[in-house]
């Protein structure tokens, strides 16, 4: 059975050197879509959108955890109450995933939920309370 999931992978400086993506593709036949990647001297973080059959996904997950990489499913998501949103833009500069942008023509604030990593920063920053946290 094919499933669609989002994961956040947190690397230590050592594990950041491992070719995780290549292993996922070659060993487990999983095609990960990289949503976000950040690496620095303290390690790194990777947000993957994965579609694959459930069994290989579980195996891949076990493999990744064996390598000392923290793998967490992004099982929450945020949604926007379109009526409550006043299109101010308070969320735009604080979202680490750049899930908001301003439409250059209308100046409306466009929300792209696919980019969201559910960090919840906008839930706090949105004062009209248009952004809501939900569980999948």
């Amino acid at each position: 059975m094919s499933v669609h999931r989002k994961y956040l992978l947190a690397f230590t400086p050592e594990s950041a050197k491992l070719p995780v993506i290549a292993v996922l593709v070659q060993k487990f036949g999983i095609i990960p879509n990289i949503m976000q990647a950040k690496v620095n001297e303290k390690g790194g973080r990777l947000v993957l959108d994965i579609e694959g059959d459930k069994e290989s996904l579980e195996k891949a997950r076990a493999y990744i955890q064996e390598q000392g990489i923290d793998m967490r499913e992004l099982d929450k998501h945020v949604s926007r109450d379109e009526w409550r949103c006043i299109h101010c833009g308070a969320c735009v500069s604080i979202c680490p995933a750049e899930a908001f942008h301003i439409d250059p023509g209308s100046y409306e604030v466009v929300f792209t939920p696919e980019k969201c990593i559910a960090c919840e920063a906008c839930i706090i920053a949105c004062s009209p309370k248009a952004m809501k946290l939900e569980l999948w």
């Binding site: 006043i86 299109h87 101010c88 308070a90 969320c91 735009v92 209308s106 100046y107 004062s127």
Partner: peptide, 10 residues
Amino acid sequence: KTSSLSSYPK
């Protein structure tokens, strides 16, 4: 990066 607190579209 900038953020507006008042709404230009409104």
